[in-house]
Design a protein around this nucleic acid. Structure first.
Length: 414
DNA sequence: TCTGGGGTCCTAGGACCC
DNA sequence: TCTGGGGTCCTAGGACCC
């Protein structure tokens, strides 16, 4: 934290010396309270589905589901119109990636099994996911925001946090400006929450979806946040929700009534501490504008469960292909990794991991395959498998590895 | 009719070294 | 022969998020 602040000071000095004084004052005086921040959370509305509607506008206003494994691209009719597959025609494994608001009204949500979704909405249109297209629109929307507010933290393909603290404009004006820029760049709408921290900004962006703007202050916490279910807090998932329910805690307000000591009886020390603050709308995590990846992985769920005894060649092929893909990802991104890991999921959905650290970091497919093979030997293989994965972690930038091995050579190479 | 793929962070035990 | 802590690395699993 302090280290980051120093970096910021050094940069600020070069740019504008007069902006530096308040920052230095704050650093010198630890008793001075941190200045009120202004954080925005921008969440694209039904992102993948909305991108598909740009391509296929005739589906606008209808229940559309994106997901499944096989390719489900529309065909062209004799009269030149497009013919789409229906959800009821889907057979096999897979989950819903996302759905339009009309499909959600029928009960079809992300991560739901495709067969269950087909029962609920057989007449919904079915499209397969096109991640290339989504990444393209993701870049467009992030760049549009960056042109207005450069302090951006990436939170995946369809959302970001922005630190607006240093910008002079009024919050609502800024939010409108950002929405307008995103719409011009992509044709898509987003929802924005603005609050003193990331926790509240994230909750805010959900409150007026789609195409909404929500401002929250600390004064809103008792009135607007406390009545909400604990699950609405980003970081309280299904397990914690269940555990809290068993303690008679349903709402964020009920959570805020509990002491640290009480929560520490049921949750780990860090998590209980975090719960205590989150329930009060407190969160001092900075907006982090850059980050290094910690791991790179590839995994696949098979069309049908496979057994080492009867499907040995097939499994071996898939395993090798995953290693080649991970190696390709590492090279494209310029990383090498020291720890190679595998992930198995059995037919009963039980999941197991094994890993092995190498003496020297690698991005070589054969080396990865050898190490992953060693890991595989340590896993029981009597049961059928439904998933196989390969992961490389303990990553280093490839050039950093060269410096470590031969600092002189690295100097010469510049 | 079960439940994708890509990640991050946390916990916890054991090895090993000082 | 018994008895310490602290730090770091390795491994495994699990919760959670998009």
């Amino acid at each position: 934290m302090l280290k980051e602040s120093h970096v910021h000071v050094a940069r600020a000095k070069q740019q504008s010396p007069d902006r530096l004084t308040p920052l230095l004052d704050w650093l010198r005086n630890p008793l001075m309270p941190n200045r009120q921040r202004r954080i925005a959370h921008v969440d694209m509305d039904a992102f993948y589905a909305s991108v598909e509607l740009l391509r296929y506008p005739e589906l606008r206003g209808q229940a559309v589901v994106i997901g499944g494994r096989s390719l489900n691209q529309p065909t062209i009719n004799n009269d030149g119109t497009r013919a789409f597959a229906k959800l009821r025609d889907y057979a096999g494994r897979g989950v819903v990636t996302t759905s339009t608001y009309e499909a959600r009204a029928l009960g079809v949500f992300s991560a739901m099994g495709m067969m269950k979704a087909a029962k609920l909405a057989p007449e919904a249109w079915l499209l397969s996911a096109d991640f290339e297209a989504y990444r393209h629109y993701s870049r467009l929307f992030k760049q549009a925001v960056r042109d207005i507010a450069p302090q951006i933290e990436d939170r995946g393909i369809d959302e970001i946090y922005i630190d607006l603290t240093e910008l002079p404009q009024d919050s609502v004006l800024l939010a409108e400006q950002i929405k307008q820029a995103v719409r011009e760049a992509t044709g898509l709408s987003c929802s924005i929450g603005i609050a003193p921290n990331k926790l509240l900004a994230k909750i805010g962006s959900e409150l007026d979806k789609p195409d909404g703007i929500t401002l929250l202050t600390m004064d809103d916490v008792p009135t607007r946040i406390w009545p909400m279910a604990v699950r609405k807090i980003n970081g309280i998932g299904p397990k914690a929700t269940e555990k809290l329910a068993a303690l008679g805690i349903q709402t964020i307000g009920e959570l805020a009534k509990q002491s640290k000591a009480y929560l520490a009886q049921y949750f780990g020390s860090r998590y209980s501490e975090w719960l205590y603050h989150a329930a009060r709308g407190l969160d001092d995590r900075p907006v982090s504008t850059s980050s290094e990846p910690k791991s790179i992985s590839r995994e696949t769920t098979f069309e049908r469960d496979l057994h080492v005894k009867t499907d040995r060649a097939k499994l071996s092929d898939i395993f090798t292909r995953l290693c080649i893909q991970v190696a390709g990802d590492l090279r494209r991104k310029g990383y090498v990794g020291k720890t190679i890991g595998i992930k198995l999921r059995y037919d009963d959905f039980k999941t197991l991991t094994r890993d092995l650290s190498l003496p020297i970091a690698t991005d070589d497919a054969d080396e990865i395959r050898r190490a992953a093979g060693e890991c595989l030997k340590r896993a029981p293989l009597e049961q059928r498998l439904r998933l196989l994965g390969v992961r490389v972690s303990a990553l280093q930038k490839k050039h950093a590895q060269i410096e470590k091995l031969a600092p002189q050579a690295a100097l010469l190479l510049g």
